[in-house]
Structures are given as structure tokens and as C-alpha cells.
């Protein structure tokens, strides 16, 4: 059976590149471009792996992550983000930041942009 991957990412170019690479590797890839669509599709379908961008419109990546874990959805989640933990601290209010960091711990893996696609593929392979 084909492994099902959901990509929640608002950059269409990024989605296309990921789609092309992962489909060719034999995965069944679904794309959504905002958080709300992401939430809806997760409620109705089962995915082995969810690739989740944090900064997405309508319902952000943190909320999606929280939703996934609260609903006990068994998908593995790989967060992809341009946010750098070391430097980003205290730019946003400290307590908000702490909440976000706690949420991030619920992801199975985090990749900081720009990452090499082979790193993502390796992560997918180890998580499935």
C-alpha cells in the first residue's frame, strides 16, 4: 500500500517541488495551502506523514499541531520552518514563546529552512 503524505504549506512552488520529488519516490502526496483546509482534510483522512509549515494562513502550524495531538491522530508530523529558535527568543513575548516551544515538542521532527530535500526524505524514511 502506498504511504500517504499530506503537505500543508502556503508556498505553491515549494509544494510543487516536494510533490514531484516525493511522488517519484512512490509516495501518495496530498497538498493543501492553508491551515483550515489542512484541518478539514486531517479530520476526514488518514495520513502516515504530515509535513507542516508553521507560518500558514487561516489556522497556523502550531494550532494544527495542537489539533493533531489533541485528537490523537496517529500521523507522524514533520515541521518545516524558517524560525530559528536560538535567535527568535525574546523577540516575541517570552511566555508566548514558551507555549510555542512546548507545542513544537509535540512534532516528531523539525527541519529548519533552508534544508536539503534529501534530509526531509531521510526523515520520512526513518519515521514511517
Amino acid at each position: 500500500m502506498l504511504k500517504k503524505i499530506l503537505i500543508i504549506e502556503d508556498d505553491i512552488d515549494m509544494c510543487n517541488e516536494l510533490h514531484e520529488a516525493l511522488s517519484d519516490l512512490g509516495y501518495q502526496v496530498h497538498l493543501v495551502f492553508n491551515g483550515l483546509s489542512g484541518k478539514k482534510i486531517i479530520e476526514k483522512n488518514k495520513f502516515d506523514i504530515i509535513i507542516l509549515d508553521l507560518k500558514i494562513p487561516k489556522f497556523d502550524g502550531y494550532q494544527i499541531l495542537n489539533f493533531i495531538r489533541k485528537k490523537n491522530i496517529m500521523s507522524k508530523v514533520i515541521v518545516i520552518t524558517a524560525r530559528m529558535k536560538i535567535h527568535y527568543e525574546d523577540i516575541v513575548k517570552q511566555n508566548q514563546e514558551q507555549k510555542k516551544n512546548d507545542l513544537l515538542k509535540k512534532a516528531d521532527s523539525i527541519l529548519i529552512k533552508p534544508f536539503k530535500l534529501i534530509e526531509l526524505i531521510n526523515k520520512i524514511k526513518t519515521l514511517q
Partner: peptide, 26 residues
């Protein structure tokens, strides 16, 4: 704050380049 915004904005296209790179290579 500016730096954080710039960082985020710039890292997104960079990650696309990185992904494209993989596909070209392939």
C-alpha cells in the same frame, strides 16, 4: 524584529531553491 521578518521571508525562497536543486540533480 526586522531581522526576524527578513529571516523568515528569505529562508522560504531559499528552501524552494534547495528543493529545486534536488529535483534538477535527480
Amino acid at each position: 524584529l526586522l531581522a526576524a521578518a527578513v529571516a523568515h521571508e528569505l529562508r522560504n525562497p531559499l528552501s524552494v531553491i534547495q528543493a529545486a536543486l534536488y529535483n534538477i540533480e535527480r
